[in-house]
């Protein structure tokens, strides 16, 4: 990943520069007009958010039971990115909803679920920041529980209410929308990969620095 880092940054930059043009060229969705373009940011960010949450959960489980410090670095980096991509989802979603449903927010299954998931990720960061010593294990347990909770949140809110377009929308997209959509998804995923690598690297440097301080004091 280290040797690929710089070339990948260049690729990602080029993709982000080209994406607005591609989205502009994509077919208009008949009923939504310009607002339908939000979809190119919203849905891929949601996918990356979910992926990032899973990464955080798996890494936390590895840290909790295997004591692998690298897993902890990955977990905190993934949690921060879950919050970041979650924020994109939660900001672009209401903009779209205002036009599609006439309301900014609805306590509907997917919306509630994203909100709860985002809240759990934020509380993870909260624990890591203000928890003091031992907060790494505490956060790991929180992430493991949060991940185990996902199916239950999904099931309970789904039984409670449903209004959001189904996930089956994505495979059935018309070709003129499908191309730019997957392009945007790839660009956002690449950005995720780069940010994650950079953040893990930073966390590792910080741990190394802490270790150096400790040996110096002894």
């Amino acid at each position: 990943m280290r040797t690929l880092f710089v070339p990948l940054i260049l690729v990602a930059t080029a993709m982000f520069a080209y994406a607005p043009y591609m989205i502009d060229q994509a077919a208009y969705e008949s009923s939504m007009g310009l607002v339908s373009k939000i979809f190119y940011f919203h849905a891929p960010s949601g996918m990356v958010m979910l992926l990032s949450a899973v990464v955080c959960g798996v890494a936390s489980a590895l840290y909790l039971w295997r004591r692998n410090p690298m897993a902890d670095h990955v977990a905190i980096a993934a949690a921060e990115l879950t919050v970041l991509y979650g924020l994109i989802v939660l900001v672009t979603g209401p903009l779209w909803a205002r036009k599609a449903w006439g309301i900014w927010w609805d306590w509907e299954a997917r919306l509630t679920m994203s909100f709860v998931g985002w809240l759990i990720a934020v509380s993870y960061l909260f624990v890591r920041k203000y928890g003091g010593p031992g907060s790494d294990k505490l956060g790991a347990a929180l992430a493991v529980f949060g991940t185990a909770n996902v199916p239950f949140i999904y099931l309970s809110v789904n039984l409670w209410r449903t209004l959001h377009p189904k996930t089956s929308v994505v495979p059935t997209l018309p070709p003129l929308i499908r191309g730019p959509f997957w392009f945007s998804a790839l660009a956002l995923f690449l950005m995720y990969l780069l940010l994650l690598t950079a953040r893990v690297h930073l966390e590792r440097q910080r741990a190394a620095l802490d270790a150096l301080y400790l040996t110096d004091e002894d």
């Binding site: 909260f126 624990v127 928890g131 529980f145 909770n149 239950f152 099931l155």
Partner: peptide, 26 residues
């Protein structure tokens, strides 16, 4: 579980509801 692991944490009284409420949504 959360209350037990928060015992050693400084701001545990604030932290408990923050961690517990999203987790017990289902």
């Amino acid at each position: 579980l959360f209350a037990a692991m928060l015992v050693r944490v400084r701001s545990r009284d604030v932290m408990l509801p923050i961690l517990l409420y999203p987790m017990t949504v289902p």
